[in-house]
């Protein structure tokens, strides 16, 4: 009898956890219930951190929780498809990165149409890239590096673990005529040991990955791939200062919505994002993550995606042509 009573009371206790919480907002206004922000990268990475920072700010601003859901896989195609296929009601949003636009060119059949299936909301900035070399490469700047690379009988090895890293290296080779051999990796964590041991001599990688090793003298940063020098690497010149143009990595971090989401909701989200980027805590947090804050409103983000699409198309056409004997 006693055991039965305990079991019953425990069940009752558990049942209370099921009682749904009524929605608090007034009818007719967006958002009325929690919004899911699908992140195409696993929890714990820099993109996830940026997305969670934005989600927290939007939750406070719009009065409903913005919940991050990590849906990694297939370079982001799985998460992106989940958003493309979701109802365009503003309750399922996407947080993704610049290489998203490369996917339709990389995968066959294309998982989605980057220009038509997604409505840009806002980009909050980008993670900067830099050219890192192993200390065994006797070069203090890009000019010396080019000279050294040309003087070698065999091309130097570069590591590439994302389409963006390969894109930067290919553009660098096209701009300078320096031959380099690509060593592909599944992720930067696999590439780092070979780079630190000098088996691979260089990489065009994210500043956040290489910076701790530059500070320790295990890697040298020869150039940053941004238009301006970075506060984190004040002594490192930009590639443009070294006279090399056209080497960029589309590494923006942005929020997108399924195509067909009502314009009013898109505007509301875009202006809330813009306002969040003006607040001190958000700026401080994103700066700590080494993110370069640069707000792109919907129209500007749409233009950027279009430009990136063309960029990727050229890149993959060139790579395919190079493979032909």
């Amino acid at each position: 009898m006693f055991r039965r009573l305990t079991a019953l009371s425990m069940m009752l206790m558990m049942l209370t956890t099921l009682v749904p919480v009524p929605a608090g907002a007034q009818a007719g206004e967006y958002p009325q219930r929690p919004v899911t922000l699908i992140v195409t990268l696993p929890a714990g990475g820099p993109t996830d951190a940026a997305a969670r920072t934005l989600a927290t700010a939007l939750s406070q601003a719009l009065g409903q929780p913005f919940v991050v859901e990590n849906r990694p896989g297939a370079d982001g195609a799985i998460g992106a498809r989940a958003v493309v296929e979701a109802a365009p009601d503003g309750y399922t949003l996407l947080f993704s990165v610049g290489s998203l636009v490369a996917l339709p060119h990389l995968q066959s059949p294309p998982p989605f149409d980057a220009l038509r299936d997604l409505a840009p909301v806002a980009a909050i900035g980008s993670y900067p890239f830099a050219l890192f070399v192993h200390p065994s490469v006797p070069a203090a700047n890009v000019a010396e590096f080019i000279e050294y690379a040309r003087s070698r009988p065999e091309p130097l090895f570069y590591s590439a673990s994302t389409p963006g890293e390969a894109l930067a290296a290919t553009a660098f080779m096209q701009a300078t005529g320096v031959p380099l051999t690509r060593v592909p990796y599944k992720g930067s964590s696999q590439a780092l040991p070979d780079l630190l041991a000098g088996r691979v001599q260089l990489t065009f990688g994210p500043v956040a990955t290489g910076l701790p090793h530059v500070r320790e003298g295990l890697l040298n940063a020869l150039a940053v791939l941004t238009p301006k020098r970075l506060p984190a690497l004040p002594d490192t010149a930009t590639l443009e200062e070294a006279g090399i143009r056209g080497v960029t990595v589309p590494s923006w971090q942005a929020m997108l919505a399924p195509a067909g989401t009502p314009p009013a909701i898109l505007d509301q989200l875009a202006s809330a994002t813009a306002a969040a980027l003006e607040t001190a805590p958000v700026r401080e947090r994103l700066t700590k993550l080494l993110l370069q804050i640069e707000l792109l409103p919907p129209a500007a983000l749409a233009q950027r995606i279009e430009a990136d699409d063309a960029l990727w198309q050229r890149h993959f056409a060139a790579t395919a042509a190079a493979r032909q004997p």
């Binding site: 714990g44 956040a208 701790p212 090793h213 320790e216 295990l218």
Partner: peptide, 18 residues
């Protein structure tokens, strides 16, 4: 370990030699 690096990064600690 990848998740732990994420946790450290969030707290402004870059895991690395230093």
């Amino acid at each position: 370990m990848a998740l732990m690096i994420g946790a450290l990064t969030l707290h402004d600690i870059q895991p690395g030699p230093q």
